[in-house]
Structures are given as C-alpha cells and as structure tokens.
Design a protein around this nucleic acid. Sequence first.
DNA 1: ATGCCCCGCGCGGCGGGA
Length: 260
Amino acid sequence: MRIATYNVNGIGARLPRLLDYLGHSGNDIVVLQEIKCQTDNVPVAALNDAGWQVAAHGQKGFNGVAILARTAITPTQTGLPGDDGDEQARYLEAEVAGIRLGCLYLPNGNPQPGPKFDYKLAWMERLNAHAAQLLALETPTVLLGDYNVIPTDATIDIARPAMMANDALTQPQSRAAFRRLLAQGWTDAIRTRHPHSPCYTYWDYQAGAWQKNWGFRIDHLLLSPAAADRLADAGVDADTRGEDKASDHAPAWVQLRAAT
DNA sequence: ATGCCCCGCGCGGCGGGA
C-alpha cells in the first residue's frame, strides 16, 4: 500500500501534471493540499476516468484538500474539529482499505508575530487534540499533508536555515507544537526511514531554488503505532519538482506492508 | 541589500503562498 501526500498549488493549473503523477507513481492513495477551488469545481470526471475515487473539501480560491484512492473512500470528518467559526478548508479525513487517513493543510502563519501566526498555533493545538482522539481508536492511521513546519535547522531538513530564521515555519512555538504531536506516539515515516539524508519536499519558485537544491522539509507522514508496525519504506518523489509546470512541492510517500 | 515566481480571480494588479 503506497500512500502519498502532494501539495499541488492549484489543481486547475496542475491537472496535467497530477494525472501524469497518478498514472506512473504506483500509489494506491494520494492526498492533496492547496487545490484552490470550490468542492464542486474539483475535476472529478477526469480523475474518475483515470481510475481514482475522489473526496474533497474545497473553498473558493484558497486552501482546499482532497483524498484520491484506487478503492472506495469512506469520509469520517470534514474540517478540523474544535472551532465552529473556522471557515478555512484545511482538513479532510476518511477511511480507505482499513486505513484511517487525515489529510491536512496546516496554516502557513506568516507574517509572525501576528494574527496569522496566532491562527497557526491555535490550529496546531486543535490538530493535536484531534490526533490524540485518533490514536485512541487504535486503527492504523496516517496523518499526512503540508504541515508548514520545518522540524529542525539541520541540513537534513533545510538547506539554508538562515534564510528562514524569522519565518513562521521555523519558530520555536511551531516546532514545539509539532514535537508535542510526535510525542503522542506518532512516527515521522520519512525521518525514520532516512535518519541522515536530506528529504526536502519544497523548493521555492524564486531564485533558482530547485536548481541549487535550496529546499526544506515541510510535508510529513505521521504513522500511528498500528500503521508504523507496517512501515516498509518512505521517501520523496523529488523528480516531480523538476518537471515543466511543477508545483513548488514534491509528493512525499510511505509504503505500508499488508495487514497481518 | 532587495527581489526574484506562481496561483486564482478576473481583466488590473492583488492577496496569498513559504
């Protein structure tokens, strides 16, 4: 079971690239962030024709998440619990083939300090509360997406830490909230499989960042204990970032063994 | 020392991204 997370930066502009990726990457499940369209405008027919079931939670112009799967999708949660006034489409959860998937697009939080950073930190607290409830289910669960947190300043997580020192993605509060999430008992699949290698998932469009490999790691796949028991491999489909009309993110993935 | 680039919206540049 190969499961990937891919921030597409606009499903409209990315559809040819996305369909190409879906066709050759060998995934069974692909979750998307930043589809940037209303739920009704997701190109469901084109995805169905390519052999993918679709569940989506969108909004006009910004944000938006989706779950694509080769087999049936059973939605379990739309929107992150904990704030009925939150209108931003950043969380979608479903069960596919006996695995619970939480697809998330965590707020960027810039500029910091400020209300957007406050929203990010509040969102992370809500995520941590919901994640604890997911762990209590003891179902194999993958909590994956664009976390907008660079876990450390080490070269394995970021090529040029000084460039991001004042960014919301590297602040101690952001990192501490991410560490608290991991400490609940989640396994960072990519870092577990690649403890010493850079595994960047994002390269800025500007300044030739891709060509210089000035990237960082913000797309994460967190495994519950029951999922971590089945961890076979994990990585980043970095070649996707070098294609024409690429997103600024590359897909990150995990391979899980069959249930025993 | 600064800005570079891309997306959606919608037709003029702007908000948002990271």
